[in-house]
Structure formats: structure tokens, C-alpha cells
Design a protein around this nucleic acid. Structure first.
Lengths: 283, 283
DNA sequence: TAGATTGTTAATCGATTAACAATC
DNA sequence: TAGATTGTTAATCGATTAACAATC
């Protein structure tokens, strides 16, 4: 049955809606659907016909309430007391994600990363096909990568039109990324995946997502440092020394400020000199 | 001055805390700090000495309230009426992220992606150094990639200990990823960045992040499909036809269900056959 | 001083989670 | 029927945002 919808003021004029279907799937849910789908594909190949939210949650690394809540946004596709039909769920999630359509991908920037992406098998797996490789370097034009020739970036508008490219992947250096992005948009590409370590801007009707290696590393470093500080505090058996350590670092910062134009790197500390990290536990 | 801290029940016994420093930086903030840092580095190199939250927000692609809120979690590093000192902010964010330390990275799986990662310059840029490359394939052992030799995976415990590896990067096929992950953890690595398209499990004290290419593509496809459906509705000038299109897709789904064991792929539709996508606008 | 901009508050929004009635 | 498991509710939590007093 149709859920009554959240009671927002705007709901006063809510239009009639298809039964069992809500108007929008939350972003957080959309981001998890590919994970569920991957797990379900594996289960399907193992011959599993039915799965409970609890088991799927296990496979996806989340909790079962989240699985049920997420899947409920697609419709009522489970059976109480039984679980979800694996194949049916694969189909419904695939459809919701648009994977029952065929998406044509162009990769721009055929350096190390571009090569890796062009050769990446998982790319082509479900609904995606790399149809064009482009680069600004005339030396690499004509090279064949995994069956697709590298074409000069100036051919972008023609290729996008002829090959009906839906998705552009940017694997250029950061410097070139915004211009390449603009040219993709100009050529009519409305979804872009950016691997270049820079912020891009696109019109509101263009989807932009990014994969940012160095950001991920820095987030890891943040947590690693926190663990090291906590371990340090633990070792001293002193609840205050964590604060003390932070204070010491603060003092370093203040010193840097007072020096004004001192280069940030000057304050660097290696693990050797300072707090030993909790590593090489096996020794 | 020290903020009073959020009034949680546990706050009744709140210990005295370093002035100007809160106890925890929200995850969402931590994830944005590297973006701010990148923008600040660029500004610094352009000789900009001071920046407002508004200008930094522009450079980072967020709004200024978010910038101020995020930076306030680090301390009061701005000057009212003036803005933030670029160099000082670079230093403070670097320190908070742990980039004033030196992190040693091991990459496991030296296929296309592993090669690209090993050659990726941005890696080494700020505080990270690739110190080891490992692979299970004896044929690739001994190969030199960007100055680092490829070593056999069986040497992992020794290398992690000797080179004091902090961060492990998994670039193996999905099948091998969990075992590699276990071996990294066993060897004492406490931060892992996973590029393999599979869910990994680690002990609670190990940091795990992932970079998932195919998930990103699928999220793009979802939004692209939504745009195509919206455009379709628009073209018909009929507010209902969107719901009608979804109903038609639902019917397809029901059909698939009634067929029971039908393969999910059987329901695939290409863009050619169905709704034309809003592409090749330039023609 | 007048103008500019931070740091903080409080309102709002969206996501997560536990719990359980519905129901297979 | 008894047991299992979904789908939904409602409480809670965390993130976002606008607004503005503080203050340079």
C-alpha cells in the first residue's frame, strides 16, 4: 500500500502517486544499492535463491535494519517470514540503478591511470562500455588500449555525438581537468566521474562525482594519528597526557605562527623522532 | 575560550579540556579538510596571504557556513573582519590530518591499477611514501616500478616490520582481497585503503576505507536515468507520464518475477530501443 | 568609526537504528 | 499453529544551514 508520505507542509497538495513507490530514494540508499547488488550477484552465482535482510546485511557490511529500510524504498519486494528472492532483487536493484540500460563511457587522459581504467574488466561488467579513449598528447594518439584506439581530444565533440557517450571519465592531470570537463559538458555529456585531484564545477544539470585517492589517504592518516595518540596516552597510564600531547602540538603551531612566513613543512616530525606508531606488532 | 561542549548526559563528568579544542572532529569535517588543504596550497603558491571563508568555500565547492563551522572544530584560527592566514591554516590542517608525520605505504597487487598507483605522483606529495610493492605473481617479482622493486607477497611480514609500513593499499582482484587484507592486519598494518571491488572485514582497531569505481559509475547511472525519465516527461508535457513510465518498468519487473528463474539480464533495454538520452546536445 | 568577516547558536534536514506489529 | 522475517514507525543522532552577535 502507499505510504502516507512524510507530513511536510508541501504535502498539503501532494499529487496521487504510483502505489508502492515513493518519490525519491535517499542518496545514502542509492550509494549502498551497488554494494547490495554486488553481494546479490555473488549469492546468485553460488546458487542461493533466497536471502534474509540479516544475511544480506552481513554480506554488505551494514546492519539489517538499514538493509530493510533501503530496500523498502524500492518497493515491497520481500516476503515476511522468508526473505528476499535473490534474482528478483538483483533485477529490481539493477533497474533502479539504471543498469538495465547500456551506458557508453569515454575516458579522457590515457596516462597510467587512464590505461588502468581502460583495462579494468569490472568496468564493462554491468551495463558500462568504454567506447572512446582521448588524450591531448599526439604521441599516444593511435595507440590501441584493450581494443580501443586513443583519439585526440579535439575529436571529442564528434566522438561523443557519433558514439553517443553518456558518461565521461576524467583521468588527466589536475591542471587540465577543468578544461576537459568543460569540453565534455559542451559536447553534451551529462555525467562525469573525476579522478583528477581538483575541484571541478559543472552546470546544475550535470552529474559530477569524484574518486579522490589522496583525500582517502589523508583521512586514513587522520585516524591513524588519533590511534597513535590514544596508544601513547594509554602507555603512560595518564588520562591527561593526551591533552598534554595536543597542547605540545598546539605550542608548535603557535611557534609556527609567530614565525609568520615559516614554511609549513618546517614543522614536520617523523615518526622516528616523535611518538612511535603502533606498527610492526608482529615483531 | 572553551566551548561548553554539547550537553550530553556523559558530560556530567566532563574532564577539563585544552582551551579552544573540542574532543572530536566530525567525520564529515575530516572528509572535507583535505579539500580545503588542497585549495589552500594552491592559494599559497599563488602568493595569497589571507582568505575569507567565502572565497575558500568557492575554491572548495561548498558554502561558507560549512567552511567556518568545519574550521571552528580545529580552533579559532581566523581573524574577524579579515579572514584566515593561508599559511597558518595550511599548517593547522596538515597537523590535524597527521600530514606533519611521515606515512609509509605498501601497495599489494601490482597489476594495471597497482602500477598506476605506484607511479602516481600525488601519492608522495604530502607525507606519504610508497616503500613497498607486493604481488603474488612470481613473474612480476623483481620488476622495478618507479624506483621500487616488486616483492613477493610472502615477504609481507618482514617488509612491514623492516620498513615500518603504516598504510596498506589493496589493488588485487576481488577474490584475493580479503586474504591480503588479513595478512596486512596480521603483519601489523592498522590502516587499509581498498581498491578491490569487494566488502572487506577488519578488526575494530583497523581503519578501512575504500575507493570503488564501479559503485561510483552506478550512482551516476542512477541519476542519469532519472534525468532521462524527467526529460521524457517534460517532452510529453504530461505530469503523469513519469509515473506511467515507472509503472511500465514495474510491470516489466512483475513479469520477470512471474518467470521465476529468468535471468536478470534478459530484461535489459538499450537506450536505442527505449527513451533517448539527453546527449549529443551540440549536434 | 564603518565595514567586513568570523565563530557560534539554533533551526532544520536527512540518516540511522531499535523495536515491533503485520504476515508469510 | 509456531517461528521467522519483513516493512514501518518513531526515537535518536549527526550534518547542514541561515542568521547574527562579537570583534577585528
Amino acid at each position: 500500500m502507499a505510504t502516507p508520505g512524510r507530513a511536510t507542509p508541501a504535502d498539503a497538495v501532494a499529487p496521487s502517486r504510483a502505489p508502492g513507490r515513493r518519490q525519491g530514494i535517499p542518496d545514502a540508499t542509492v550509494a549502498r544499492l551497488p554494494i547490495y547488488l554486488r553481494a546479490l550477484h555473488a549469492l546468485n552465482e553460488s546458487g542461493v535463491a533466497t536471502i534474509s535482510s540479516d544475511a544480506l546485511a552481513d554480506a554488505a557490511g551494514v546492519n539489517s535494519a538499514k538493509v530493510r529500510k533501503d530496500l523498502s524504498h524500492l518497493g515491497s519486494y520481500g516476503t515476511r517470514g522468508v526473505g528476499y528472492d535473490v534474482e528478483y532483487l538483483v533485477y529490481q536493484i539493477s533497474r533502479e540503478l539504471g543498469l538495465t540500460q547500456h551506458w557508453r563511457v569515454a575516458i579522457v587522459g590515457i596516462g597510467n591511470l587512464g590505461h588502468a581504467l581502460a583495462n579494468y574488466g569490472g568496468f564493462a561488467s554491468r551495463g558500462f562500455e568504454v567506447v572512446a579513449l582521448l588524450d591531448a598528447d599526439k604521441a599516444s594518439v593511435g595507440e590501441d588500449v584493450n581494443g580501443t584506439p586513443v583519439t585526440h581530444i579535439d575529436q571529442l565533440p564528434r566522438l561523443v555525438a557519433e558514439l553517443r557517450v553518456n558518461i565521461g571519465v576524467i583521468a588527466t592531470p589536475a591542471k587540465a581537468a577543468q578544461e576537459v570537463c568543460d569540453r565534455l559538458v559542451e559536447a553534451g555529456v551529462t555525467s562525469i566521474l573525476n579522478f583528477a585531484p581538483t575541484v571541478l564545477s559543472v552546470p546544475a544539470d550535470v552529474q559530477l562525482r569524484k574518486v579522490d585517492l589522496s583525500t582517502e589517504l589523508q583521512i586514513l592518516a587522520f585516524h591513524e594519528q588519533r590511534k597513535a595518540l590514544a596508544a601513547d596516552r594509554e602507555a603512560r597510564g595518564d588520562a591527561r597526557s593526551s591533552a598534554a600531547a595536543l597542547e605540545a602540538l598546539d605550542a608548535l603551531g603557535d611557534e609556527a605562527r609567530s614565525l609568520g612566513s615559516q614554511r609549513a613543512e618546517a614543522g614536520h616530525v617523523t615518526n622516528d623522532a616523535a611518538t612511535p606508531l603502533p606498527q610492526a606488532v608482529s615483531t
